[in-house]
Amino acid sequence: MTQRVELATVRDRLAVDGLVTEYAVAVDDGDWEAYRGLFTAKGRADYRSAGGIEGSAGEVAGWLAEHLEGFPVRQHLIVNRRVRFGVREQDTGDTAQVQADYVSPMGRTGQDGGPAAPDFVCGGRYAFAVLRTDDGWRLSEVVVREKWRSLPGPWTAPVVN
């Protein structure tokens, strides 16, 4: 591999990683216009495993805006990002798949109007399909695979018979 090709790959990897970070920030900040702008024109998202919907980026942004309104305190962490370029059939170097784990604590505003402890925490794995466009790398698909969730209240051991 030439140094020029390696530099282009590093640049693409940083751009794709930045796209995933912008996704998390848009969701946490409730910036639904920015969220929509991260997707291709035909981009889709699937939140069904987390109790949500599947649809276009615009439809899902509307659903998220409505359902996350009750949790103004959000800090979405996306880690263990595995980026694979050119995994789609007939790829010319313009697609990528990203698998990444997430932890998403959410809370209501505290009684004094300030931050509150999380009321709800969930975790799982994202599958991002990414496409290079004239406007840079964009999401063509996001699939959320929620693996666990924790609700407030004391933990009780499961009953074993």
Score class of each variant (00 low, 15 high):
M106T: 07
R36I: 14
H67T: 09
G55K: 01
R145M: 15
Q99Y: 15
Y47F: 03
R88W: 12
W63Q: 02
A157K: 07
M106A: 08
P118V: 03
L38A: 06
E59I: 02
E89D: 13
L14M: 12
Y35F: 15
R44G: 06
L19I: 08
V160I: 15
V144Y: 06
P152W: 00
D119V: 07
E54Q: 10
M1F: 05
R11C: 12
R88S: 14
A15Q: 03
T9N: 14
D135F: 07
V5F: 11
T92K: 11
A61C: 07
Q90C: 09
R74L: 11
L139K: 03
Y35E: 08
P115S: 15
L19T: 04
V98C: 02
A157H: 12
R108C: 01
R82F: 10
L131N: 08
V87D: 13
Q75G: 12
V83Y: 11
V60G: 06
A45Y: 05
V130I: 01
H67E: 08
G153Q: 00
M106S: 08
A41N: 06
S49I: 07
W155G: 11
W32I: 04
T95S: 09
V130M: 00
C122A: 09
K42A: 15
R108K: 07
A96N: 01
E89N: 08
I78W: 01
L38C: 02
R81K: 10
D17H: 12
D119I: 11
G52C: 04
M106H: 09
Y47N: 03
W137N: 02
P105F: 05
R88P: 12
G55M: 04
A8K: 13
D17E: 15
W63R: 00
Y23D: 03
G110I: 00
L139F: 09
E69R: 12
V16R: 02
V16I: 06
N80S: 10
D29V: 11
G110R: 02
E59K: 10
I53R: 07
D12M: 01
E69L: 13
G55L: 01
A127L: 15
A15S: 05
A45C: 00
Y47C: 02
L19N: 04
V130T: 04
R88G: 15
G136T: 03
N80L: 10
L151M: 14
V130L: 04
R13Q: 14
R36M: 13
F71Q: 08
V159H: 12
D28G: 06
R84I: 10
A34F: 07
A100V: 01
E54G: 09
A26T: 07
V16E: 03
V98K: 05
